[in-house]
Write a protein that binds this DNA or RNA. Structure first.
Lengths: 319, 319
DNA sequence: TTGAAAGCGTTACCAG
DNA sequence: CTGGTAACGCTTTCAA
């Protein structure tokens, strides 16, 4: 039996008050209500099973208390972790997150942004967006995560310094020929960090393999890299590192004995690879908190906030 | 400059028509509009950058074309994969998914359900819910995924048959002492499947270790199991299997030489463990498609739909 | 302390 | 084929 929804009117009638009073009770403001009236209203709400209609509220108020979140790929553990952290952070502040994936396609990304705007989200969180959305006139705050865009506020890990940290650690183990597995164009920072470390140590540049940010990509890249006989490999993402490990195992290469490995990202699964991966951990929690904070507080600054990374030593580097 | 949003009124005025006509044009119905008028309206829309307000539409129509999705843990790759598939499926039908995580806490789960209902979602997808939501009066369709609830429609993989399939395969490799890593109470099916296979082969029951559905849980469980010297281990989830592998490696046990391993779930990361895992693959795409279909078509049946699993042979079983 | 009523942007009915 | 308009459920000002 599809009983139609209980509205504020029903509650008002049942309690013998006006809808205004119901509103005052539900929102605990903006007017005070006599305790006795209040009790009657609360009773009515319970008796009728009234649930406020957030849609109507949003229309009236002009805000939905909803954020739109777009990740390039919901299957990437890093993005899943970020999404989770953002959801938690937003929920704690009374916001709800509309999460969706752009499937790595710029067109899909634009379409999803439009869809979210139509739904009157109060703000947009874009993880590693491919394009600058401000070309379209977006009237809500936007924040880019893990990618710096010219016209919007952004938050990202210290890619360059982090990569440098990781590679320096590899160098400290005595490696002098350190390969790099890196994504395609548009992600120069980790590569620069790797180069920084090499130069500072007076080392020649090791081999570089470009691949997609995926296990498969890392797997293929490692097979290429192996021909140059590096003694260590730094992967620009977890997923790639996992592919690297598989390629190494298949080739009968001992890790870290023959080749040491370290990676950027540090999602939980890197603790359970074999051997466990030494990683430069992205500050996921902080990125999420900071992104949500900026969105809610309407921070206008388009200056990128860079959050430090953390080096986590495990066995894959030789430690 | 925060220019206020362009409304249907603005468009109507600009185009010199009534708001009704604008509506007809935007929705391509329910009345026909003269081509010339139509063109004027479309021009106005473009010129003004008009974007329909889905909130107002939802209020008027009584439907938001939004689904609420609650998973127990956004960090679990299986749920991430499911969420992704559901998002894709829903998007293809013009729906958007409000995704959130219950963090494995029944209270949080209830709170999130209430929040989503407040927001007038058109349907609720609950992944492995802990409680039956129909206790509260929910007026939208609900579907449970991967858990059968008495009063709501549900969709889930063939847990029992799948587990049996996996264990039978282990038996076909000649194993006679097959341990089981399984979740706590409330998930009897995979255990039954394991037992089915053992009984059918006339084997004594192998050791059982109960653990949380996590890498950590699998790791600990395997350490316990090892004391009973099984020659094979079947894990009831990927995450646990990954923990099992780590425990085995640390103990210097060769996989699959000394102990073979197989797991239930089959998320992408199992292809890149070492050795790659033989898995009983959950039919994620079908589960998602079927769940969304039922929700949209308002299928009332509370009969559980069971979708077959697929055995994927890789190296961890000895193949 | 409470009630009446306007109005948020939309859809769709009823007239014309 | 098009215009005017009521209604969706809510918040909040203004008046009582």
């Amino acid at each position: 039996m599809p009983k139609d929804p209980v509205t504020r009117n029903d509650v008002a009638e049942y309690a013998g008050v006006s809808t205004a009073v119901v509103s005052y009770v539900v929102n605990e403001g903006p007017r005070k209500v006599a305790p006795e009236t209040r009790a009657r209203v609360l009773d009515a709400i319970r008796a009728l099973g009234y649930r406020p209609n957030a849609t109507a509220r949003a229309l009236r108020m002009g805000t939905t208390r909803t954020f739109g979140l777009i990740t390039p790929d919901g299957g990437n553990p890093l993005f899943a972790e970020l999404a989770k952290a953002i959801d938690r952070e937003a929920a704690a502040r009374g916001y709800v997150v509309l999460q969706t994936s752009a499937d790595g396609d710029p067109l899909t990304e634009r379409a999803k942004i439009a869809e979210l705007l139509t739904r009157q989200v109060s703000g947009l969180l874009l993880v590693a967006p491919t394009a600058d959305p401000s070309l379209d006139d977006v009237e809500v705050p936007v924040i880019a995560i893990n990618r710096v865009l010219p016209t919007v506020s952004s938050v990202r890990p210290a890619y360059r310094e982090g990569a440098r940290l990781g590679v320096e650690h590899l160098i400290s183990h005595g490696h002098r020929r350190i390969g790099l597995v890196i994504g395609g164009a548009g992600h120069p920072e980790r590569e620069l960090g790797w180069r920084d470390a090499l130069e500072a140590a007076g080392l020649a540049e090791g081999p570089v393999a470009r691949a997609t940010f995926s296990r498969e990509g890392g797997y293929r890249a490692a097979q290429t890299l192996l021909e140059s006989q590096p003694t260590a490999i730094f992967a620009s993402s977890d997923l790639q590192a996992i592919g690297v490990l598989r390629a190494l195992h298949e080739a009968g290469v001992d890790v870290p004995g023959d080749v040491a490995v370290a990676a950027f990202d540090g999602t939980p699964e890197t603790e359970y690879t074999w051997p466990p991966l030494t990683v430069v951990r992205q500050p996921v929690e902080q990125l999420a908190r900071e992104a949500v904070r900026r969105l809610i507080e309407g921070e206008e600054s388009t200056e990128a906030l860079t959050v430090p990374t953390e080096l986590i030593l495990r066995r894959s580097c030789g430690c």
